[in-house]
Write a protein that binds this DNA or RNA. Structure first.
Lengths: 146, 146
DNA sequence: GACATATAGTTAGTTATGCAACTAATTTCA
DNA sequence: TGAAATTAGTTGCATAACTAACTATATGTC
């Protein structure tokens, strides 16, 4: 086993166990403290709908990197909380369009500010070039494996 | 909302949705194809025990960045598969030491090679400096939030 | 020594994830 | 046109995550 390979193995452990879950936990905690009853996963779905409303479930799978059953159940829960509504597509009867309710639209500013604040806390001492490198590496890794 | 903040929000989405799960899924798939019946989470616990055997559950929490109930159940499942054994500590009766079985020791070479191979696939086109930057950024993020 | 506090681990409840197998609608193409 | 293949979404099953509440042991302090 070469030294380089070992370092790469270490990276796996770093990527999967540490920073990403730390950020997610902190953001979830900030939501709770603000009295917001949504999970971080639900928020990540809403995040994409705020950018573009009424996406199909398949499109949400693509944008959130989740599989279809995961999205089905996240949408189930978001629908129970009356944050989204499934609407049949007029052009393709297989498709559900997932659309925001008024309540969800009102969540946007509040949660985006919390998310930005959390990322600012998380990224103290990290500069723009480093952030850019991380994004590029992750995009590259994703492309390599899919 | 400043432009810089928005970019940081984007990073969150990248970190949590994409590369880390892509790597985990690929590694899990490689385990399955090799006929190995362990999950990626179980493997990550074994990974730390291969480095140092007979750790307490609390120490495994620290090293794998998981909480206590998660480790309790991971160890439950690993014990069912006869890959680890809980041993009472002689000096502190609150503590379980989690020790590898022979079967688990034999898994080591096979799975480490698969993990290295998976990381090599994942990191095609990524250089050492970039890997170092990612590791440093993640360590910094983790330290900022804990 | 005794009571308060801290630490190690477990259990219960809810949400989320991945895979495999399924239904229903659409598209392809012979 | 009609059968085969593809696509969108759901359901069942197993594992894993987090929180909160719990038991048991150890430590600290008066």
């Amino acid at each position: 086993m070469s030294n380089n390979q070992f370092k790469r193995g270490e990276l796996y452990s770093v990527i999967n166990g540490m920073a990403s879950t730390a950020v997610a936990r902190r953001l979830q905690k900030n939501f709770r403290q603000a009295g917001l009853e949504i999970t971080i996963e639900q928020w990540s779905v809403l995040y994409h709908l705020w950018k573009e409303d009424c996406l199909s479930q398949q499109e949400l799978c693509n944008r959130t990197f989740r599989d279809k059953p995961s999205i089905t159940r996240l949408i189930d829960n978001l629908e129970k909380q009356k944050l989204v509504k499934r609407m049949p597509s007029k052009t393709d009867r297989r498709i559900n369009l997932v659309c925001l309710t008024e309540a969800a639209k009102q969540l946007q500013n509040q949660t985006i500010d919390l998310a930005n604040q959390t990322m600012n806390e998380a990224l103290v001492g990290v500069n723009k070039e480093e952030i850019e490198t991380v994004k590029q590496v992750f995009q590259r890794v994703y492309d390599n494996l899919t």
